[in-house]
């Protein structure tokens, strides 16, 4: 890659590399489309996603007025998929942001200050990790009450250790570097060192991890919906559609195949993008 005439920032270089990764580009485009559809749901959806019609239940794909068929209450599947994507993506990204927020704070503190604080935090993280993830989520939802917000909160709590450990690891290796040591010696406040110097240098593993994690969160939320602990009716959400549709998998497979395929595509796109980002941000992996 030598021979670049104009000096570029590392970010620009990474973007340049990312742009050449066809899979990552495809993933990013798919995600962009999904996000666009979600944002435009009120305009795009042909019908009210909660409008029932018991006389037109389980209509097959291509029925007039129901381009992708209708569900167990005669609601338009296309409209529900469009609105459901909005909810599912929101849950996925929302849960990651919450988990990352908490994870980054405790991970930074543990790694930067070390000592007893590190021990205590890491023991707590061990406790969370030793807990079977979905069960912890179920127990949390059981005590907070079911619903989309609580389900999101539960899966984000489950996700905290993941981020805390990533950040702590990065901080441990950064802490001894010269520029951090220098900042400390000249007496810069800890908060400033953490936010100005430490955090920006942990960002790339964090971005990669978060991209891959959004998919996991979407699937975990679907799992909670399967257990009846996710979105409440009549809200359209992919996981709810999928788990409600499973009762009709033989007479009307499209009820569960369509939302299942939607989840699959989005998670796949996130993984392509995440892989691409990892390669782009970590040039050692490229030949």
């Amino acid at each position: 890659m030598g021979g670049a005439v104009i000096a570029r920032s590392p970010t620009q270089e990474a973007l340049q590399r990312l742009r050449r990764d066809r899979m990552a580009v495809a993933g990013a485009m798919l995600l962009f489309c999904a996000a666009l559809v979600s944002v435009l749901a009120p305009v795009l959806a042909p019908q009210d996603p909660t409008q029932t019609n018991l006389a037109q239940r389980l209509a097959p794909i291509g029925t007039p007025g129901y381009p992708l068929g209708s569900d167990e209450l005669g609601r338009d599947i296309l409209s529900r998929l469009i609105w459901g994507g909005r909810v599912s993506l929101l849950v996925g990204f929302g849960a990651v942001i919450v988990a990352m927020g908490f994870g980054v704070i405790v991970g930074l503190m543990a790694g930067y200050f070390g000592g007893w604080l590190d021990s205590v935090i890491m023991r707590l993280i061990d406790v969370l990790m030793a807990f079977p993830a979905i069960l912890l989520a179920i127990a949390i939802v059981a005590s907070l009450g079911p619903g989309l917000r609580n389900a999101m909160l539960a899966i984000s709590i489950v996700g905290i250790p993941y981020y805390a450990r990533i950040i702590r690891g990065s901080v441990l290796s950064l802490r001894e570097l010269e520029f951090i040591q220098a900042a400390r010696i000249i007496g810069a406040p800890d908060l400033r060192i953490l936010t100005r110097h430490v955090l920006p240098n942990c960002l790339s593993p964090l971005i990669v991890a978060a991209t891959l994690d959004v998919g996991w969160m979407i699937m975990a939320a679907a799992g909670l919906s399967f257990l009846g602990l996710g979105a409440q009716p009549p809200t359209a959400e992919w996981g709810v559609m999928l788990s409600a549709g499973r009762q009709f998998i033989r007479i009307a497979p499209h009820l569960s195949v369509l939302p299942g395929a939607a989840i699959l595509l989005v998670v796949l796109a996130l993984n392509f993008l995440g892989d691409g980002l990892r390669d782009a941000l970590d040039p050692r992996l490229r030949q």
Binding site: Q51, T52, G145, Q232, P234
Partner: peptide, 17 residues
């Protein structure tokens, strides 16, 4: 819920185990 909404009664469903 959908039937009640049609006559103006707006019910919010809350599900419990």
């Amino acid at each position: 819920q959908a039937d009640l909404k049609a006559v103006g009664v707006d019910c919010k469903i809350e599900i419990f185990e």
